[in-house]
Design a binder for these strands. Structure first.
Lengths: 165, 165
DNA sequence: CAGAGTATTCACAGATCTCTGAAACTTCTG
DNA sequence: CAGAAGTTTCAGAGATCTGTGAATACTCTG
């Protein structure tokens, strides 16, 4: 990745954006480093030298990213080191996980509605709107993501076909 | 709001969820306090006593929430105090603002694609997928939100009609 | 236009978070 | 199975963030 300054800049820029959105700064940097790297995979040592951070920091970032599907360990034949990669379809995975949040918001709204008692009270009305909104989103978003997955896979298959011609 | 423990609990619970998602803890508490309140509006003093925080903290939270459309000042006839409210349609507004983020992600991907040069390189492929995903979402999400707005407004109008019968 | 009632700002104390560096632990290899 | 290579854990230092409380700035009212 050290091979192109523009890529590195873009990586750090995105890391900053993600950090402002709540992601840990180092975690974000590790993620964008993998995302913008011209190598297929990076090792922990690569990340240390590239980002100037300790191995402990890398370990921590990996522990956060892996369960979210934003980083995957790649079997590394012939190397004792772990190899990491930004997975295909990670963005879709990420957005799918937001659905969990949508569901939670809906549940909270339900509980609030029950607690408010009468839906015509101020709190009751707010809860009703909240519940309506989140159940709507929870119904509509997953199919949308699924559609992207399908479309994108098809698009890729097409490209490969044309390439082979 | 002090009138129902369940509402208060739900409020604090949601605040906690939002805080874990990156929102400032006090800001989240102010927001959920307004959301779950049985009063139409709350004053800064109300928030202070309800949440046991200083006026400075309230001021700070308001400054964060208002520009995001998660809190609005309500003209308070006959009262010198500011009155605050959780606005109608705030959730939709909030999600619409996410679109700005989607756009930014797309732009970063574009820049990355340009920097990667060849779209067949590892970085190039990742960028291409990223761009595809975010431009897809940016195309599909706003109409979806708009649809909810329309549906919900219609639904409310309906209810009022039936109520009036 | 003076003054009371509010809102906002700000320096600082306290809490929280996060990375480092080293030690402990794992897992391969010879 | 001993030792090398690599990863994870952890205590503690340092940085960052955040709320308080008091001072400041507004803004109505009489």
């Amino acid at each position: 990745m050290g091979d192109d300054k523009r890529l590195r800049d873009a990586a750090e820029k995105l890391a900053l954006i993600l950090a402002q959105g709540g992601m840990q700064k180092t975690t974000a940097r590790v993620m964008t480093c993998l995302l913008f790297s011209q190598q297929e995979t990076l090792t922990a040592a690569d990340l240390c030298t590239e980002l100037q951070i300790s191995s402990g920091a890398v370990s921590g970032a990996v522990k956060q990213l892996a369960p979210s599907g934003l980083l995957e360990r790649v079997p590394a034949p012939g190397s004792r080191r772990d190899h990491y990669r930004f997975p295909d379809g990670a963005w879709a995975t990420l957005m799918s996980q937001q659905n969990q949040l949508l569901a939670t918001m809906g549940e909270v709204a339900d509980q609030g509605l029950a607690a408010a008692g009468d839906p015509s009270t101020p709190a009751g009305q707010r809860m009703a709107e909240m519940r309506d909104f989140y159940s709507f989103m929870l119904r509509e978003l997953p199919p949308l993501i699924e559609r992207w997955r399908t479309d994108f896979t098809a698009k890729q298959a097409n490209q490969e076909t044309h390439q082979a011609d």
